[in-house]
Design a protein around this nucleic acid. Sequence first.
DNA 1: TTCTTGATTGACTCGTCAGTCAATAACCGA
DNA 2: TCGGTTATTGACTGACGAGTCAATCAAGAA
Lengths: 196, 196
Amino acid sequence: MPKLGMEPIRRAALVEAAIAEIGAAGTLDVTVSRIARRAGVSSGLAHHYFGSKEQIFLASMRHIQTLFGRRVREELRSADTPRDRLNAIIAASFDPDEFAPEIVSAWLIFYVQAQNSPEARRLLHVYTTRLHSNLVFNLKSLTNDANAHVIASALGALIDGLYIRQALGENRLDRYQTMGLVWDYLDIKLSQGGER
Amino acid sequence: MPKLGMEPIRRAALVEAAIAEIGAAGTLDVTVSRIARRAGVSSGLAHHYFGSKEQIFLASMRHIQTLFGRRVREELRSADTPRDRLNAIIAASFDPDEFAPEIVSAWLIFYVQAQNSPEARRLLHVYTTRLHSNLVFNLKSLTNDANAHVIASALGALIDGLYIRQALGENRLDRYQTMGLVWDYLDIKLSQGGER
DNA sequence: TTCTTGATTGACTCGTCAGTCAATAACCGA
DNA sequence: TCGGTTATTGACTGACGAGTCAATCAAGAA
């Protein structure tokens, strides 16, 4: 067991454990001790590396968003046309893995935190902005700029709304119908003038 | 000061106070004592009437949804055609009052609770179902039944998604552009065949 | 008047937990 | 080998808060 360079290993383990515990609780009502125990370390060490519970949660959220970004890039790799790329972004958002209970919990809690925690808000802003420019970039080769921004805003909101409903079991549609609904919206808006 | 029939008065005051405290905290990390103090009673009384903090929160959420239902019915009163009624429902969802910080906090926390609290989930289900049938009912006179359900699902998700973004300051559009976006979607889908 | 019942209080109990700290161990470079 | 640094523990503190409870008060009923 190496005695040096443990920090990244422990941080990663603690983040994993935090996500799991948050998922199990469905809430931020999770003790640092439990997270630490699950990660196989003492509570003291968790504080040593992260300083506070909030930092552990923020690191967890950063991790989840990194994973999501990775997934988007992966889907994007097999997409050639702008339209394919738009579909890929949408597909990434509705990937079954994104609906794992612990991911859902983290996102919902994250929205709550974003109201008051500046860092959570910043993270949320990064997420929405990235999604938006990703969409706009590809939309711009299919319609005019103003249109691209409006469509991207609508898509972002539609994706988030459908995600939450799906996650909470309030969506009457299955995964494919749900994605179809978004694609359909895109089809319409793109076939509707505003040509490049 | 009447000594009898205080219960409804105190319950209402406690619910009001709870909503205010939740808004101030942005979280469920609110003590029963603080709620009680704001309502002008002792913490004991709050427990006497509600039994637990969770019950206070659920009552608060019920209250917020009642207010929302009221608002919808109000908007509906001045709407004559099915299409006007659809617009009215949308307008109610984006009424500035619905974006008061304490209402936003309550909704976001509510989503978190809906994961695990059966009663919260039930309430959420009532909300989405009511919205859905409200939309479907009016859509059915403008398009066929299957279409009505799909459009209503999309509208519900779109409204929720736009609401959350707006509430968290992540919406690039203002209130009118936001509602316009929803109306535009409706226009398109209704002008798109699937006639009654 | 006396009894019953609803209203109300706030002190108290019993947990819980975030964050601190002092101590120990293990490695590394000089 | 020694001093510095990193890793690690878990006991401890200080605070806080949900829910309980016994007691008081007031009003209407009998």
